[in-house]
Design a binder for these strands. Structure first.
Lengths: 340, 340
DNA sequence: AGACATAGCGACTACGTAGTCATCGTGGGG
DNA sequence: CCCCACGATGACTACGTAGTCGCTATGTCT
């Protein structure tokens, strides 16, 4: 067991110990059926004894498959992307894949390309864009299949798969409608950075809902996902007595806004209703607890990953999953009828 | 570029196009000095044209080095571990390494072992345990070098490196002292799960500080890092009029406690002071803003990773970094002198 | 009983890269 | 003017695995 002998044992070493060929060892570790039970057991015993583990580099070299998937995630520790990453890893491990991550930053224009290149150099079978960001310059070129969660970004790749949200499952629209139905004349929006697809989608669904309800569409304020930006934009909104309902594109910004409203002496939800997005674990425990939208990241990760690996295994027979209902509005205490 | 021709081009293809040997192509891509400038340029041009990229599997097979580091992180999207992961990835990419992640869960006893095995199977040059968890059963066996951030876990590995906190840099102790100096007779503690090394350390530093100051040491309440547990444990503390200061092992739990105190009608910081740990971005924006401890994850990741790769490059001449001052107390509005 | 299928296994080989050593030309020191 | 050092390059090979094909022994069917 892991002698200081230096070199890791190979399939050849195991084969010699058992008295079979290297090919038979290979068969055992690939669960090929044409090995007698007795041989299989002896091989496994010898492998255990030597501490043998198949060399994935050799396997990848030969087969061209790495059993590794690259994930481009957001370069800051926001809850949404982090939770999705964790869910993806869990789902990947279940099907014997592993995950290599690369992060991109909003303040770094070439960041997405750099992140993707890093993954491609490492050798990945596919790339998952978990929070696609629109880049201005040349389109992203990726020479492996791409899975986009939620969006279909503009990339040039052999295949772009995507898992979309179900029709009518626009949670941002649902939140907006809910606030209108409570009696608010309109809903103000603190948007996320517009190069993020998710931010754009939420903003668009918000405004479409207002239009559909014949409500005025105020200018959206654009933050950067942080509580700080929510706080600062919230101060502007707090000054305007017309504002009675705010929908922020994520919970962090919503919590920042809660604070500025509080500082301005405006009661939540008495004077102003506030809703967020993501249902971060803290959202239920701030004061007042935050109405928000929870996402089933585990489900999304599971389905997306299965779709992707089905495709990798057999590109011609991988049925796209139906649009997913991944969002669910969670009503808490930060929203109420206007007091008028 | 990336013809549908099927096979990825190899160094041999580039060599043929340029009219040199495959070995020369290899030299160019390894920045070996003994290539004429003219040849180098022609090779790079041809590589660009063909879309050639060195095959890391082949390189890893031959050299035994993967340029890949495995990170075991926490399987839930808490801020601390996520931020550290992001920082590690950033630092790794800078030195041409990539990061493969595996997550472990507190509720899964074999989780750490499973996570590590997954990384070892993939082939990693080293493993970073970012939040070591103590496992009860057999000691973890890892056949690559291990870097532990903050702690020295019990693993059986060829080498275990660690980056430790500086003496006196015990932020948990500092927070406790600070609260005592404000005039609180003692400080109550909401601890994290005790199999996490960080949780144990904070708890221990807290109690040691109390002892050093001749203050009573109340029983610590143990949560699970979540706001929910902080909320529930906070309710117990809120019932006890003797409690005037609470130090929670992370901000999420502190925020949960804030809420239960609020619900119980106890003012923060008027009646009870509350401090957290991690300085999650939201901490400054909850009401009252939270006194906490911020960590320089980027610095820790940078130093740890450099140490690790120095060691990988030359095991005999990798000086361990000095203990790091990674924590800094941030005083906000949730702590004050007791009102008595 | 003879033809034939099948289970079980091994020999040989390719995958793309980098280490080793050999080769070739060229210019400077003796 | 010759030898040698050195810069620049190539030929050959090993790394550990799995695909292909072939071989042998043991049935099975007619």
């Amino acid at each position: 067991m892991t002698d200081p002998g230096k070199r890791r044992p190979g399939g050849m070493d195991v084969a010699r110990l058992v008295g079979v060929s290297q090919k038979t060892v290979s068969r055992v570790f690939n669960n090929e059926p044409t090995v007698s039970e007795e041989t299989r057991e002896r091989v496994l015993a010898a492998a255990q004894q030597l501490g043998y583990r198949p060399n994935t580099a050799a396997r990848a070299l030969l087969t061209g498959r790495h059993h590794r998937i690259g994930v481009v995630s957001l370069g800051t520790a926001h809850f949404g992307p982090s939770a999705l990453l964790v869910a993806l890893e869990r789902a990947a491990r279940r099907i014997s894949y592993s995950l290599t991550v690369a992060t991109s930053f909003e303040d770094d224009p070439g960041g997405l390309k750099a992140a993707v290149d890093n993954l491609l150099v490492q050798g990945v079978d596919a790339i998952i864009l978990s929070e696609p960001v629109d880049e201005s310059d040349d389109p992203l070129v990726i020479d492996v299949p791409v899975l986009a969660l939620g969006a279909t970004p503009e990339v040039q790749a052999p295949t772009v798969l995507s898992v979309r949200a179900a029709e009518g499952g626009d949670a941002a629209a649902e939140v907006t409608r809910y606030l209108l139905e409570l009696g608010h004349r309109t809903v103000h929006h603190i948007a996320g950075p517009q190069q993020w697809w998710a931010a754009r989608e939420r903003r668009q669904n918000w405004s479409a809902s207002l239009v559909a309800a014949n409500a005025a569409v105020p200018d959206a304020l654009t933050g950067d996902w942080t509580s700080r930006s929510g706080y600062e934009l919230g101060r502007e909104l707090a000054r305007d007595p017309e504002v009675t309902a705010i929908f922020a594109a994520n919970d962090e910004m919503a919590i920042g806004a809660l604070r500025s409203l509080h500082e301005a002496g405006r009661q939540v939800p008495g004077d102003v209703s506030v809703a967020g997005f993501d249902d971060i674990p803290i959202a239920a425990y701030v004061w007042p607890s935050l109405t928000t939208v929870s996402s089933d990241n585990a489900e999304l990760a599971e389905i997306g990953l299965r779709y992707l690996t089905d495709f990798l295994n057999d590109p011609d027979h991988a049925p796209p999953p139906p649009p997913q209902h991944v969002h669910r509005m969670v009503i808490r205490n930060s929203t109420a009828r206007p007091s008028t």
